[in-house]
Amino acid sequence: MSHLPYIVASYIAVLGAAGILAFQLALRLRRARTRIAALETRSARQKDTL
């Protein structure tokens, strides 16, 4: 393949950036979901004690 370094670099850049964005999103979603779940169980426990 001619110009291989340029081709490889561009594919790595695009797929790498897509991967980073996807990973960051997955992390964000999981953190938000666990946080809401924790808050919900805590408030349910509070209601029980009241």
Partner: peptide
């Protein structure tokens, strides 16, 4: 989706 969940958690807090 994540942003809405984050604001919701914030509101609960």
């Amino acid at each position: 989706q994540a942003a809405i969940l984050e604001t919701r958690a914030e509101q609960m807090l």
